[in-house]
């Protein structure tokens, strides 16, 4: 074991399983799947032929305030995943009972694993 790890960091060609073509192929498949089906699932009000696709600036932008606010960064990402984020925000709502509930649920799930003879 001694020495091998350094070799791996310094000479990355030893022992790496790194097939970029496979990753590109997987990425391509994902892109196709999302293009055909994903957009319908996440945003069904998207319309290519309207003004939605154009950049949009509102208000009076002056020299000083000419920057995008941090809440508006990655807006498209947030908007397209808002169903996921709605669920997640509900979990992180600050309700202390919910926080304790998850501990109980995890313990119960592990108990089920013990009962099933898996653990």
């Amino acid at each position: 074991m001694n020495g091998k790890i350094i070799d791996l960091i310094i000479k990355p060609e030893i022992g790496i399983v790194w097939i970029p073509l496979l990753l590109v192929a997987v990425f391509f498949v994902f892109m196709v799947v999302f293009h055909v089906w994903g957009r319908k699932f996440f945003r069904n009000d998207y319309n290519e032929n309207s003004d939605q696709v154009k950049p949009y600036n509102s208000g009076n932008l002056d020299e000083v305030n000419y920057s995008v606010k941090s809440s508006n960064l990655y807006w498209g990402f947030k908007k397209s995943m808002d169903r996921y984020f709605d669920i997640m925000k509900k979990f992180h709502d600050g309700d202390l009972n919910n926080y304790a509930k998850w501990f109980v649920i995890v313990v119960a799930a592990c108990f089920l694993l013990i009962g099933g003879g898996l653990l």
């Binding site: 709502d93 600050g94 309700d95 202390l96």
Partner: peptide, 10 residues
């Protein structure tokens, strides 16, 4: 604790 959430908007 339903009123005291302690969390503002995400």
């Amino acid at each position: 604790i339903r009123k005291l959430k302690g969390v503002e908007d995400h």
